[in-house]
Write a protein that binds this DNA or RNA. Structure first.
Lengths: 126, 126
DNA sequence: CATATAATTCAATTTAAATTGTACTATATT
DNA sequence: AATATAGTACAATTTAAATTGAATTATATG
């Protein structure tokens, strides 16, 4: 299909904004590798826990990551990728950036849109 | 594959930053529909030509859109999606957010990582 | 109960980018 | 040659978000 639902575009826009931050992209990259505890994220990314917590909050609010507390010691928190959200992100992204959506040119303004008429006139005029 | 090339991640990060801006996403959306003349973009998006020009410049610098001048009147400029860049964007995005990359959990810190030993000790202790 | 730890929250600051307004360039038209 | 037009470039402003530092919560441990 050529046209896209405005709601879909808005959803994509929200997710892209969340995901486009360099630090968050690196966090996601680590979570994809299965790393989950907050402390290891901070160590591997060389970031204060503050900041990790902030970015994880943004990712969580967007529904991209899930949270789980340690059963033995509730002080520890583990993060993981939300598989369903990931699937939806992929679906929306693919739908929007699908190359098949590209339509042939049809400029609605400028001389090109009336090129034929101009050519005809040129033959008639001196 | 589970791991990703750092250069690939950086490339994705750059593109995501370019594409995550709401206005630019809407511009891309129109360009996908084949609209190309600058003036129509400005009209349909209710944006000053200034700003359209700025965002198109960002998109162009990222290689995502191409520029073409009118043959009959060189004042007019037409923009279009760069198909090759679009394909690459899709490839990089799909590689990064591929759900198959998600690994099973293996927290490297916290009590969970030593849960078995704790259980053993519990049986020994009074 | 007092202390330590993992994480979060809040306020203040810094940083980056979008937006706006104006001036400029290039081309075309009369 | 003078004027109009499409688009761009630049400087100033505004806006949004990341970052930082300090304070707070909740749980665990001695």
């Amino acid at each position: 299909m050529s046209s896209l639902d405005p709601a879909t575009i808005e959803k994509l826009q929200t997710w892209l904004k969340v995901v486009s931050d360099p630090k968050r992209l690196r966090i996601i990259n680590l979570l994809m590798e299965g790393v989950q505890c907050n402390c290891e994220l901070g160590e591997r990314l060389q970031m204060p826990r503050n900041l990790i917590s902030h970015h994880l909050g943004v990712l969580r609010q967007a529904g991209l990551v899930e949270v789980e507390r340690d059963m033995l010691d509730a002080r520890w928190v583990y993060y993981s990728i939300n598989r369903a959200a990931l699937d939806e992100l992929n679906a929306v992204f693919d739908a929007f950036f699908n190359p098949d959506r590209i339509q042939p040119r049809h400029p609605a303004c400028g001389p090109q849109s009336v090129q034929e008429q101009i050519s005809e006139i040129k033959f008639i005029e001196p």
